[in-house]
Design a protein around this nucleic acid. Structure first.
Lengths: 232, 232
DNA sequence: TCAAAAGTGTTGTGTGTACACCCATGT
DNA sequence: ACATGGGTGTACACACAACACTTTTGA
């Protein structure tokens, strides 16, 4: 049985959260997956997530699950969509609220835990078979991410505090799967007045060092009023 | 108690759906509200909605609740957001999945039912005190509606099958709370190639009759590739 | 003939797009 | 001196924004 009734007569349901965590590593957009230890889909890869507890908010549950499987805390999770079909889960009815987030690879540490034997990053372009309807959730998250990239500064979360414009452009190109014009990209980004050039330079080997910039806004910024960024 | 545990050990929660139904009547953007018959918030106005049943999908529950309180079926509901704070509902924990939709006033019939003694339309600019956090849900729905208007044809749902360009412009103006330039609006709409002029005219009294148009696409259309409609 | 809304074009301005070369550094 | 990525400006096309008058009808 998937649903029960309580004393006040309301049907009750198990609620899960699932998190699509993106990063860029080695020039590739990747998603964090964990290997399932329990049936159903035992041994299959799945999104990190789990069941919402009795007294926690759904947002908190998503954060908690992510923290249990990674060392990342203090992350900005954005709610994606709620999937409420009765037959998503073979065990019975589980409604899932999905989230997505972006993390910078450098600041990131994996940490194995409890039910999770393995966690690993997979390129979004070559995902393994996923448990449940998680493939659909990843696809939806990617679509949303690409959209948001166009009118917010969400993509900056993939970068360290100080970054070069080439690194920023690289992040956009990897997410959009599309090459962008260097001059137009730099002009547009600098015109937004959300970047501050530092006096430091990144020495990258045997080339000219690149100026490091910082993001001056405290939070992700909506850009619609300042001008939409796409399509370069 | 708000949550219980079932045999498989999962915490379970009551799930509600709430629907923000918009229409335009007498040149005003309005929202459908129902008067609560039961505590909590007995006598207060609230969004139409209710508890998701054991075997129905969340989307279906939203449609069902709307049909129980109106005569409208076959409507396009769009999922808005899931509110999962533990203390939204004084009875205990209820997670709500919110939806919004637009209907054409003419095609609409109200129908009183069951727990609902009254249902009525209220201007979004002058809402009464709402039960729970429903005011916040309405605000969020309106924000989303205004955004979507800019890159989809969602606004067409407010109009009958055949409509004049002036009526279409009026719908946009009412939702955006902003006057638009007649010539620019008409040019942009016609350039999108989603309208077909009929050979009929609407006689509006003692003025020149206006040509009636139909929307040629079967569904709501995303316009991003064809060009964003805002800000006129 | 008058009132009231329908309908129609042009011009200036800003933004997106395409495109090629010199610069600074390490080896 | 050469290889590598960093960094810069201009010209064209197109879309948006502002703006006023004529047309058609009913009363």
């Amino acid at each position: 049985m998937s649903s029960s009734h309580s004393s006040n007569g309301f049907a009750k349901h198990a609620i899960a959260v699932d998190v699509v965590l993106f990063t860029i590593q080695a020039g590739t957009l990747k998603v964090l997956l964990v290997k399932r230890q329990q049936p159903p889909y035992r041994g299959a890869w799945a999104l990190p997530g789990g069941i919402v507890g009795p007294e926690e908010s759904v947002d908190d549950a998503a954060l908690r699950e992510l923290q249990e499987e990674t060392n990342i805390g203090n992350i900005y999770l954005e709610q994606l969509y709620t999937f409420g079909e009765p037959n998503r889960d073979p065990r019975g009815r589980v409604i899932t609220v999905s989230y997505y987030a972006l993390v910078n690879w450098q600041q990131f540490q994996l940490k194995a835990r409890q039910r999770v034997s393995q966690a690993d990053w997979f390129p979004v372009k070559r995902l393994p078979e996923l448990a449940f309807d998680h493939r659909r959730i990843v696809d939806y998250a990617l679509e949303r991410l690409r959209n948001k990239l166009n009118y917010t500064t969400i993509g900056f979360q993939l970068l360290p505090k100080e970054f070069t414009l080439t690194e920023l452009q690289g992040a956009y190109e990897v997410i959009l799967s599309q090459r962008l014009d260097k001059r137009n990209f730099r002009r547009k980004m600098l015109q937004l007045n959300i970047l501050e050039g530092t006096k430091e330079f990144k020495v990258n080997g045997r080339q000219r060092p690149a100026r490091l910039y910082t993001f001056t806004e405290p939070k992700v910024v909506k850009l619609q009023e300042k001008g939409i960024i796409v399509p370069f």
